[in-house]
């Protein structure tokens, strides 16, 4: 028996995995930071599905705003593209 909630949870597991790989494969560092933020939303949903809604809220705020914010700040202070040579 598969209800909607569980289906979404399975989708989020896939999203977390694909998102993490996709973030690391980007050439553009700013895009990588945004994708890692999106991966955190999926993670926050998983926390919710695993009966820890308080952690879901914390992760949603910290993982999508604070962590990418720090990384984006570091990128703006350094450089946006990955050196190739």
């Amino acid at each position: 028996m598969i209800d909607t909630f569980m289906t979404v949870a399975y989708l989020m597991v896939v999203a977390v995995t694909i998102g993490s790989v996709a973030a690391l494969l980007q050439k553009d560092l700013l895009r990588a930071a945004f994708i890692s933020g999106a991966e955190s939303i999926a993670l926050a949903f998983l926390f919710h599905a695993l009966l820890a809604p308080d952690l879901g809220l914390t992760q949603a705020v910290v993982g999508t705003v604070l962590m990418p914010g720090i990384i984006i700040l570091a990128i703006l202070k350094t450089r946006r593209d990955e050196e190739s040579d």
Partner: peptide
């Protein structure tokens, strides 16, 4: 920066 993102992962 990629290492930093890996650390968050």
């Amino acid at each position: 920066i990629k290492k930093l993102i890996s650390f968050t992962l």
